[in-house]
Design a protein around this nucleic acid. Sequence first.
DNA 1: CACCCCTCTA
DNA 2: TAGAGGGGTG
Lengths: 333, 333
Amino acid sequence: MLEARVKQAAVLKKLLDAIKELVTDGNLDCTDEGIALQAMDNSHVALVSLKLVAEQFESYRCDRNMPLGVNLTSLTKILKCAKDQDVVTLKAPDDADSLGLVFESPKEDRVGEYEMKLMDIDQEHLGIPDTQYDATITMSSSEFQRICRDLAALGESVKIEASKEGVRFSSEGEVGNGSVLLKQSAGTDRSAGSSSKKAVKRDPDEEDEEEIEEDEKPEIDDEEGEDEQDDEDRSKKRKSNGKSKTAKKAKKDESTSEDIGVSIILEKQVSLTFSLKYLTNFAKSAPLAREVSLHMSNDVPLLVQFDFEQGTLQFFLAPKVGWGLILTNIHAD
Amino acid sequence: MLEARVKQAAVLKKLLDAIKELVTDGNLDCTDEGIALQAMDNSHVALVSLKLVAEQFESYRCDRNMPLGVNLTSLTKILKCAKDQDVVTLKAPDDADSLGLVFESPKEDRVGEYEMKLMDIDQEHLGIPDTQYDATITMSSSEFQRICRDLAALGESVKIEASKEGVRFSSEGEVGNGSVLLKQSAGTDRSAGSSSKKAVKRDPDEEDEEEIEEDEKPEIDDEEGEDEQDDEDRSKKRKSNGKSKTAKKAKKDESTSEDIGVSIILEKQVSLTFSLKYLTNFAKSAPLAREVSLHMSNDVPLLVQFDFEQGTLQFFLAPKVGWGLILTNIHAD
DNA sequence: CACCCCTCTA
DNA sequence: TAGAGGGGTG
């Protein structure tokens, strides 16, 4: 059976808001390591991979692996019945054909119990290669969202160019062209460092527990050993490692993106073009995490990753291969 | 070439929000005196006249006169890509077929560069007569907006009656009739005074200071020598000249209409009826200026004027000549 | 393209 | 609790 207890319904709500427009149905793969969901988006262009790690639940028990086929639209509806601070307990017996959800108010004076029908979904579990990316950009998630929204007003796709100096997002369209250049924050230049060669490790937790140190963050390793409840420091610690200088006071009315800064880990310059429709959708996850990281290599799907307290949400999107790019490749041969 | 630098994108955004629903295309007439835009609204009922004076730009350079035909919808879209505090630089070479816009974050860690296609627009430059109005009402712009919005819920047009005692806005409709009477603030009665014969002033407040003409603005800055660079205090201080009672702490974000009061300069009583649809549109400029002035003479187009730090925005609208009014006129003979 | 509703922030 | 901004619908 499964019994997983989440401290705050809010995180589940945000998660569903983040992915429900991309994916309508999916299997919640429950194991003793946690709950994962992996699915192609409805048009089979993007891949969504969510992982909620067992240790980050208030309590977690899963006796055996269970794929729970859920309709995310339904789940969203039911989660709307929970207040943000409610404690949520997910329950499913081993032979479940439905998922139970219990919402308890913090004062324990209200209990909501819901049951959602499950469905059978053919498991197309995709192996996500543990890619080594040429460029990893970490930035404010709200700034990322802002840029995607802005450029989406101009054109349908965005070219992302990462160099040591910064990252440029540019788009072209009928009304005109536009580009946004974010300069790398001072003191965060870690390009060409050996650490930059590490692969992304956040999601494939299982695969490389030891390799966790894409930017020399020993503390993160600690958490694996004794990650009781200090989990919420997890993401913060990581941030403070990378950019202590961003600790300035936060001017609230400027969407606080200022005090996060941009860090670029660059193995090789990259220039890739993506559909803004999808990126805008990915960016809806901004409420989940202050930071987002973009992982890119030429001709390889982009990985957009949000790390939050309870786990990780990843989006993969293949670059647009327009005529320009094809010609480029031909000539490059 | 043109290169004009604006300290805060916010003012441009507000300007476009203010006029984009009335005018979709127009020429930005750039001269060494500044940037002007004059256009009939899309249904050729109202006239919009915007003037941004060169001196109020952070820097301004315009080598020769250039009419830049812009689509205001496109310009609005591009301005949405700027944050409110961004520094905006408008650029156009002499033979430009596009307008460049550069948005720089205050911290200079983000640069947005946009290019907007220009269009050829037949210049129908209208001479606006320097009319002497029988009545000039100065009031809180947000109060004006509120009244227009309220009355628009009742009827399609509003009758504005200005007398020495105050100004009455009234409307009639299916659900009922309504009127708002604003009494003139104490101490501002200047009707039949010689000053009331002056032509439209940029900022009627200045009339309180005897004879300060609209072109002598620079001196106003001087006399307030203590406000170093914070030009944004300028307009506030000016107000405090005219009505010291408004000198209280100016809470900027809540445009408290209360402490602005109503002043009426009356040469002759007027009673005119206007389409609320248009007035409501004009009133959208409220974020630009704390005050608005309404200039009226019987049977002459209304002038609604907003004076802000960088310039002036004027709207002209012919009165409705409904049967009621025609009959009135006939009987008046 | 405009209008209305909902959500988030102040 | 009210206002502003963003998203969605007609």
